[in-house]
Amino acid sequence: MTGWGILKSLWVTFKHLVVTYIEDLRYGKRRYFTPEGVEARRSSDVRGIFTVQYPEEKLPVPEAFRYLPFLIYEEGPDGEKQMRCTSCGICAKVCPPQCIWIVRKNDPQTGRPIPTPAAFYIDVDICMNCGFCAEFCPFDAIKMDHDYEIASYDRLSEHIYDLEKLAKPVTYYASIRPTDYALEEAARAQKGSAKKAETTAG
């Protein structure tokens, strides 16, 4: 019968419409503007509306999420920043759009390089968020951030990040990527103890 197919199509849309209200009634106030409600709207058995009201509501990002690199520093005993970066240059070499710029520090007396960066720049207009720098850094010194709200008014003055803007404490890293952090710390501890055993044995 002509028209039956259209009616069936309309029935599908009608069901979608009704389910939205049913779900709203079922969840009540918990459905919107609560972390629980956001989670419910992205689970595999979600029915009804999917929309997340950004920026009032935000989807939590998974741990693997990557957006712009940052440099990790550890706080020394009297609060000074100890950069993990040794300015080995692997991140600059592996970077596909070549947006990482590193100036190596040299000892003023001997002229020999010191394993810490004198300057470190990332042009965030060029960065393509591929995550290679973090993946291949042998010192766990550069990691990908979770903060994706970085809009600014002037690209010429604000979009080349320098050492100061890139440096973030290791505690911040531990807070955004707890699993990765725990794994890396365990590996470091193992490496450290192996080294210690070697020196005591030797």
Partner: peptide, 15 residues
Amino acid sequence: AKPFKSRWPEGFVFR
């Protein structure tokens, strides 16, 4: 070919 030599160890940034 990449990697460009200007990026390291004297990577003074320019656009």
